[in-house]
Amino acid sequence: MKILIFACKWCGLIGADGAGKKRIQLPTQFRVIPVECAALVEPDAVIRAFASGMTGVAVLGCHLGGCRFNHANHAAIKRLELLKTLLDATGIGGKRLLISFGTAHEDHQYAEVVKTFFDELEAMPSTAAWIS
């Protein structure tokens, strides 16, 4: 299980910080890359992550309308939804890309998002077909 999380500094990362302060125990197999805004997450980087063998990628951003960069995250969600379609078409599964905006700002919410994502990915078939 390898999960990569892009966390927006103003939402997901604050949740991650809170989860730490609350000592909420989480599975270890995820890595967080902090970004200034979810809009900075290039879909190509997400593809790169899958190509590097990630089981799942999560992009955590602020809720729509709550982005400090005006409407920056609107365009981000559109791009990533399009990528999901492509992942579905190739059978990798759009579910492996978690786009969660405005849901991980609080410690327990963040922990919940991460745990649920783990469980979901656990239930999915392995990506061995690509890797072999």
Partner: peptide, 25 residues
């Protein structure tokens, strides 16, 4: 520095030097 332009640029012409695509990769 929201990075929207970086994400839609088809060939990585626009970059935020503080978070270059090479760094992310």
């Amino acid at each position: 520095a929201c990075g929207n332009c970086v994400s839609v640029c088809p060939n990585g012409t626009v970059q935020l030097p503080e978070q270059d695509y090479r760094a992310v990769a």
